[in-house]
Design a protein around this nucleic acid. Structure first.
Lengths: 144, 144
DNA sequence: TTAATTTCGGATAAATTTGTCCGAAATAAA
DNA sequence: TTTATTTCGGACAAATTTATCCGAAATTAA
């Protein structure tokens, strides 16, 4: 479904969101520990997310990563996935055909309409505030 | 969503099904041409499908691959996907957690229930007879 | 029986994804 | 200003996925 890189990216974003709700900024090391990911590789992914303005990065002592608290309800998981894996999951042909549309559909085209709709609806409506709240209440976990 | 290997596997299976409906057996070369895939790599995938009893392979002159016509309605796309990509798409955690369940769910766990249900329902109910018919009627295509 | 055809299966190679290393740049605090 | 800390970014390396090559085995037909 998602690339490994993307799962790291989602988990990192959610951890930053969790701490953002508590007005805390987190470092690369803290993130990698919290989500159980390779440190240097996680740094690369965070750079991408920062460039896409999904998170903010601050250099220097006391630096780290954060998300403006007020932005939490406006950022969706779909945005994170698109930033890392692109939008092929949401728009590409399930069988990888370059040209696949109503006029010349692949054999799975019609079947995938409902799956895609569900994916879009679910990931576009899951915002960081909601998910961060679940994490802070201990209802959900980021590793194991 | 699916690995590239899996898209080849699905397309190959559908092409064999299409010809099975016409009582025709097809060769590796014909399959690779029909679905626009690398010949030798396709051979490997067909071996897997044959071992999983999704298709039959016949060696020697006039040999090739086929599916018993009577089996077409009993084989689903889900079976093909499971044979090649395993069942992580249907059962694994979306964020890759080893342990992710109702007691200790990942932050996406609840959101993914509906997506997973839709995937299961759609892929488990799409059988080869139906899809082969669409192909033979020229309603759908396997390449481009 | 021989020759031709086709899949099987193992070794190997290329491409992509995942992961590491390390110096550079920025910045906070002494 | 200097030092310590933290992210940035480029080069490199390992692991995995995708793809190729080729002889072996099976089978059909001459």
């Amino acid at each position: 479904m998602f690339s490994k890189t993307c799962t790291y990216g989602i988990k990192a974003t959610l951890f930053i969101a969790q701490k953002a709700q508590l007005d805390e900024r987190v470092s690369l090391k803290e993130i990698a520990t919290a989500i159980d990911s390779p440190v240097a590789f996680t740094a690369k992914i965070l750079q991408v997310l920062a460039k896409e303005h999904i998170i903010n990065s601050i250099k220097g002592p006391k630096g780290g990563f954060e998300i403006a608290k007020a932005q939490l309800p406006n950022i969706t998981i779909k945005q994170v996935v698109k930033a890392i894996d692109g939008d092929s999951l949401f728009n590409g042909c399930a069988l990888g055909l370059q040209e696949c549309n109503e006029k010349a559909p692949c054999p799975m085209h019609d079947n995938f309409v409902s799956i895609r709709d569900q994916l879009n609806e679910t990931l576009a409506s899951s915002n960081l505030l909601q998910v961060a709240a679940d994490l802070n209440q201990g209802r959900t976990v980021l590793k194991r």
